[in-house]
Design a binder for these strands. Sequence first.
DNA 1: TTGCTCCTCACGTCACGTGAGGTGGC
DNA 2: TTGCTCCTCACGTCACGTGAGGTGGC
Lengths: 291, 291
Amino acid sequence: VEVKIMLINEICKKCSLTQKAIEYYIEQKLIFPEIQNNGYRDFSNEDILMLKKISVLRNLGLSVSDIRDVLSGKATITLDKIYHRKTLQIVILQEKQKLIQELAAKHDWEEIQDRLLQLQKKQTILERLMNAFPGYYGKYLCLHFAPYLNEPVLTEEQQKAFDIIICFLGGINFDIPAHLKKYLDEIYLNFDEKMIENISDSVNAAVHETEKYIANNHEVIERYIAYKKSEEYKATPAYQLEQVLRQFNSVSGYNEVFIPAMCQLSKSYRKYYEELSKANEKFAERYPELE
Amino acid sequence: VEVKIMLINEICKKCSLTQKAIEYYIEQKLIFPEIQNNGYRDFSNEDILMLKKISVLRNLGLSVSDIRDVLSGKATITLDKIYHRKTLQIVILQEKQKLIQELAAKHDWEEIQDRLLQLQKKQTILERLMNAFPGYYGKYLCLHFAPYLNEPVLTEEQQKAFDIIICFLGGINFDIPAHLKKYLDEIYLNFDEKMIENISDSVNAAVHETEKYIANNHEVIERYIAYKKSEEYKATPAYQLEQVLRQFNSVSGYNEVFIPAMCQLSKSYRKYYEELSKANEKFAERYPELE
DNA sequence: TTGCTCCTCACGTCACGTGAGGTGGC
DNA sequence: TTGCTCCTCACGTCACGTGAGGTGGC
């Protein structure tokens, strides 16, 4: 009994790919069809499945190297990383769109040039942040710092601060125990944009209108403090993570190098940081049991 | 007296470009520095100005061919075209982002594949619309039709309708008198997103809640009708444009081919179109002076 | 034998990057 | 002469596209 073999043209139609594309994926070792005696390729069912997935991922805008990562297990985590990288890119694209519009309207080349320079610094910092702190934490930091990175870099001090930040973020070795990494990844996958917005809204309220926030959220705050002090909390991975982050921030230079440089680079961040410090003082005054 | 000539390295710093990039732009005939006896290039001040602009435009994401268009006069119109092309691309990117997220969450490859197919058809139609009708009118049509292009193409009839649409848009020769084209371009440059939203909101109100709209906007409607009937209006380019569009729509197949195919392709558009027809009837009933 | 498919190989795309090898300027 | 710059030329990148030339299947 002979089994009829599918010709490459049929495979092309089944997977909506061109012959040359398929040959390229073979060259790139994404699939491994056997070669028959007559030189024709023999595509297995797995090959076909792979090619269909490759086609989807290419159409979604992934590079072949990204596709390799997605298809070699860990699809969820990899796709999420790609998603957040691309989100950042789209944000940058949108800011560039605004600049194109302004250039069309006012033809002020020098202003656009300056704004582009700023935008590139912002992008560099955010990209490094994402690389330095993988998963959810990096994303959170990006959202946290992004609003303060829209200022022009005018003085030499600012330029130095920028270089320090880039250097700091480049040298980071954010290594935490495997089970905490897994925990972070889980948080990360369950977070959506809305939750992050809600959280940052309430953090903003606590920082900018501390008295009001304290007055309105008495119960929540006290329950929070009680929970933080409980043995129950100390048994959670969240507690361990907090400890590790505290440790990391004081040892790595995050508190001593990175944050001061951010204050140097961005006036608005410095302002925010000062307000944050005041808010912390007020909280400590009102709730001395917070260490 | 000898004039010192700037070396390419200085030019690189002045324009924030690499040497190789500059050599590439020379090869692409974007600038034409003279070559001296010793083989060194002599960059004029215009060359430097050009290189600065090229650098800005490349950083804004334009291709060299786009840059050629921008720099050869007509910067405003060209940049606007590019802006709208890129806006469409960003919209598509955002829809792809959603698909990446869903793929990461549910791993339903077949569903994503189907949605991608839809998305590609939508993109094709919108791109062809933009090409077929230049400037403001194409943009308006895109915004008008985009919401109805999110349905899957399941039946053969739909596929045929899609092919008819593509074929129709490909064969369009939207040629209108030069002064009307100029008038369209002017409208186009003065339109921003908000105005378009406002307009489409009130059109929607008029179509979906016709009675209410008529009841609430009596005065405006009557003033509008009076203006449309006036000699003053008939002297405007807006009137001439209206006539040309009416003519075009009945002759080109827009009314007889394109709109029916849209109704075939998209159930939601068919529904909209029926409501529109009803609304037109109601207006004609209430205001018989509208022809 | 004819007309179709398959295969491999080479060169092209876009906007440069990365050397290699040779010359000019001081 | 030395160390630096400039020049041209060739090859590489990424994900294929486009033939060319030769073979296999029916």
